[in-house]
């Protein structure tokens, strides 16, 4: 059981690291990737938490989260691929270079 406890701590640390990337940016794709990997960490955390508390049924929920996370990331990225050619000159290529923050 303590194996799962150690794994939980490691996953939480990995979540914090992904969070740092989401805070710092700087480019748009860094944030998309941070969000996606954060979702993956959430999936793993829920799975491990299920085994930690002795209820592996949580694995089903983790699977559904993986599906949602995948679909959301695809949706976000498709959004930008659709919008990219229609960029107005008022905002020059802020998406193409990734919209650096500050």
């Amino acid at each position: 059981m303590s194996m799962f406890a150690v794994a939980t701590v490691a996953i939480v640390i990995a979540m914090a690291l992904a969070l740092v990337r989401a805070f710092a940016g700087p480019s748009l794709y860094d944030r998309v990737l941070a969000g996606n990997s954060f979702g993956t960490k959430t999936v793993i955390l829920i799975g491990v938490m299920g085994f930690l508390t002795g209820r592996p049924d949580f694995l089903d929920i983790a699977l559904l989260y993986a599906l949602i996370n995948f679909a959301a990331t695809i949706a976000i990225l498709r959004f930008f691929s659709y919008r990219q050619p229609k960029r107005t000159p008022a905002e020059p290529s802020s998406a193409a270079t990734g919209g650096s923050d500050d």
């Binding site: 969070l19 989401a22 940016g25 944030r31 941070a34 954060f38 959430t42 959301a72 500050d102």
Partner: peptide, 18 residues
């Protein structure tokens, strides 16, 4: 930076779901 806010709100939802 609005895009960062949107991504962070997604992360916020994932965190609260967990």
């Amino acid at each position: 930076h609005l895009f960062a806010v949107v991504m962070l709100s997604g992360i916020y939802s994932l965190l609260s779901a967990a």
